[in-house]
Design a protein around this nucleic acid. Structure first.
Length: 506
RNA sequence: GUCCUGUUAGCUCAGCUGGUAGAGCACGUCACUUUUAAUGAUGUGGCCGAUGGUUCGAAUCCAUCACAGGACACCA
């Protein structure tokens, strides 16, 4: 495993350290400040100081990122989580022989060290630490990638994320932002009185969305379980139970394709709010974004790739209206199945002629409108045919009380007033079962336990899901979901393993 | 699932219409006590993603496979 000659060299250096009585994996860390604090506290030191200030003595630690050995003195840059610090390491300030036999020969870039010393400013004006004692905490036996270009190969960055994090500080920032987004989201809903809950990740029936699930087996009960594709049906059971505002931030799993916006496991927040409608959700969503932008200190004119997204410009438009106003679809065709099919064919697009009107309207939307929705836009009044879990409008039974929020041409949230009529829900499940019998392997399973729950009465409720990964992509100006997931799904590297697995399946 | 592109030293990359492999950084040795991708000298370093084929000869051409990136399809 460690046959590489650079690694062998470094292993030998670790052995030399051991022979000199130095533990290359010591845990005797005496660090008493972080680099960020060190730099802040000592920012008042302006001129070059040669004299040691007995009141300012620090112990800092970090990984060596740069090493410039210049004869009897060296400059070392070490990095901890908070920042980068330059050390000045001179032979005559260290114990006899240490500089030449230990430091110069056996400590190198990548190693984690601890340094004792005092602050001073170099001739070039950089606040640094003048070292009077130095020891190795952890020997790195694998060399780091090249210091200037770092590591750019995306495959290596994803497979060895730790290397990516060591080499690319902006990647660390992305994941710090992700953590902040999740933390702020939690706080926002808690402050509104929502209760955070945890519902099962292993479901007897994969429900709450139409997607292919991952299957596993529970030995003790000898039953198959499905990794959840959505928490929806469990959260609604909690509303039936009397909780009036609940949310869950957690992973969903879908056994489908992967691309720049899809990973087999992804994070969403779903929240359900009794005695509210989708209109209330529009308002809380605007408030939520305002809250995020304030606390993340983001500009409301947010750059995203070549785009500028104006978060002061929330729009709201019914789906049918968006087709003509934004999509440029002729107004006289949007309510006719035949005319839509003809229109799509005219545009050289594949058309499934078995689709119903609502599905075709959805097609028109996907084709001509979605990518044009740059500023945040609530698309409302979805056709009932493509909204099986949403409550019908009281004034127009063809449409539902639903919206999806689009930003930068991408769906960010999906929300609706919930269907709470148990008989209607039972009929819709039956319809899904029929579709399944006809070969639709993504049709919803019958969940009679859920229908029974509804039969006890679920208060009028509005619910919403927000894709956290896509939201973080937007806020961090990243364009692949893999860049906002610490460990994105990857195929195994070892080809032999794949073949063996494939043979076992046959 | 389809198409396109890529895979060469630890890292970042060259390598022309086929003639048995190059640079920078890193690493080794030497010099250097205020550098900023330090500098100067010198040296080591490769199953050219894998397997077949064409050829006197393949990193280079062809086929298949693996992995990745991108686009499309799928995912209401």
């Amino acid at each position: 495993m460690f046959s590489n000659k650079f690694i062998q060299q470094r292993i030998e250096k670790a052995d030399v350290l051991r022979e000199a009585g130095i533990n290359p994996y010591s845990n005797q860390s005496k660090r008493n400040t972080t680099i960020e604090k060190f730099l802040n506290v000592n920012a008042d030191i302006e001129q070059k100081e040669d004299k040691r200030d007995a009141t300012r003595l620090y112990v800092v630690s970090g990984r060596i990122k740069f090493l410039r050995i210049m004869g009897k003195a060296s400059f070392v840059k070490i990095e901890d989580e908070s920042g980068m610090l330059q050390l000045y390491v001179a032979r005559d300030n260290l114990a006899e022989g240490f500089y030449n036999t230990i430091f110069k020969k056996n400590i190198e870039v990548g190693d984690i060290i601890e340094v004792h010393g005092y602050p001073f400013v170099t001739g070039q004006g950089e606040l640094s630490l003048h070292a009077d004692d130095l020891k190795i905490l952890t020997k790195a036996i694998s060399p780091l990638p090249e210091k200037f270009h770092g590591i750019t190969d995306k495959e290596v960055r994803y497979r060895k994320r730790y290397l990516d994090l060591i080499m690319n500080t902006e990647v660390r920032k992305t994941f710090q932002t992700r953590s902040r987004v999740i933390s702020l989201t939690r706080r926002f809903f808690e402050d509104k009185g929502f209760l955070e809950v945890e519902t099962p990740m292993m479901h007897p029936i994969a429900g709450g969305a139409n997607a292919k699930p991952f299957v596993t087996h529970h030995n003790a009960l000898d039953v198959d379980r499905y990794l959840r594709i959505a928490p929806e049906l469990y959260l609604k059971r909690l509303i039936v139970g009397g909780f009036e505002a609940v949310f869950e931030i957690n992973r969903n799993f879908r056994n489908e394709g992967m691309d720049a916006t899809h990973n087999p496991e992804f994070t969403s927040i779903e929240f359900y709010w009794a005695y509210k409608t989708y209109k209330d959700l529009i308002e809380i969503t605007k408030e939520y974004f305002q809250y995020l932008f304030e606390h993340l200190k983001l500009p409301t004119l947010l750059p995203y790739g070549d785009l500028k997204v104006n978060f002061n410009n929330f729009q709201e438009i019914p789906l049918i209206e968006s087709l003509t106003v934004i999509g440029g679809v002729p107004a006289d065709i949007v309510n006719s199945k035949e005319k839509i099919i003809a229109y799509l064919k005219e545009k050289n697009l594949d058309v499934n002629e078995k689709m119903n009107l609502g599905q075709l309207q959805g097609e028109l939307f996907d084709e001509f409108v979605e990518e044009k929705l740059i500023d945040p836009t609530f698309i409302t009044e979805y056709p009932v045919e493509i909204s099986p879990l949403a409550r019908r409008s009281d004034t127009n039974p063809e449409i539902t009380e639903r919206f999806e929020l689009f930003i930068a041409g991408r769906e960010i949230a999906n929300a609706f007033s919930e269907l709470n009529d148990p008989l209607d829900q039972l009929e819709r499940f039956k319809g899904q079962m029929a579709a399944k019998d006809c070969g639709d392997d993504e049709a919803h399973e019958m969940d009679s336990d859920f229908v029974e729950a509804l039969s006890y009465g679920m208060a009028p409720t509005a619910g919403q899901g927000i894709g956290i990964d896509r939201l973080v992509m937007l806020l961090t100006n990243e364009h692949s979901i893999r860049d906002v997931l610490l460990f994105p799904a990857m195929k195994p590297l070892n080809g032999d393993l794949c073949e063996e697995a494939a043979q076992e399946e046959e």
